[in-house]
Amino acid sequence: MPLSIHDLTLARGGVPVLTGVSLSLQPGRALILRGPNGSGKTTLLRTIAGLAPPLSGTIEGAEDRVAYAAHADGLKAMLSVTENLTFWASVFGQIDINVALEAYDLHALKDRLAGTLSAGQKRRLGLARLLVTGRPVWVLDEPTVSLDAQAVAMFAAAVRGHLEGGGSALIATHIDLGLSEADVLDISPFRAADGALVGASDEAFL
């Protein structure tokens, strides 16, 4: 089942940011979103993840299929790497966390408390969480912040493995992930025109 988004209009803080966003993401494909800061990437991803409602438009194939990851990873400093992963695995009805530990080279760290990890290691743990969700659609907001080149390669490998398994990924990023097979979408053209009336909540007052 593809993720298909049709004519989506989004607002942030009552002001429209994006209008007419349409995209389709087939299983096994990755789509990289690009756009300058403030262009509405995060708003779009949170809407697809179901955390915010769109002003208009439809999102199909996202409900209960999305694994969302953003700047905060939902990790607890006082839990070990294994405990953190096991918790998220069981929340999503999964059991095995070894694949995730393997993919991000976390075996050596697995008994360390998450609070004692470096920023990059934490980030790897946060991304490893995606592998224990068992969800087919990954929606990732700036996943490579504070990762070194080696860890970025791990991430790219994990995404590739996910795609080969029939999953798909929607990634907002500014850097080159080395995912040559991914499609790229620049969202700047969807930016809501100034003064556009699209149903944002502040329009009632204009």
Partner: peptide
């Protein structure tokens, strides 16, 4: 730490 966002999804 973002746990609530993840729990909500």
């Amino acid at each position: 730490d973002g746990t609530l966002d993840l729990l909500a999804t």
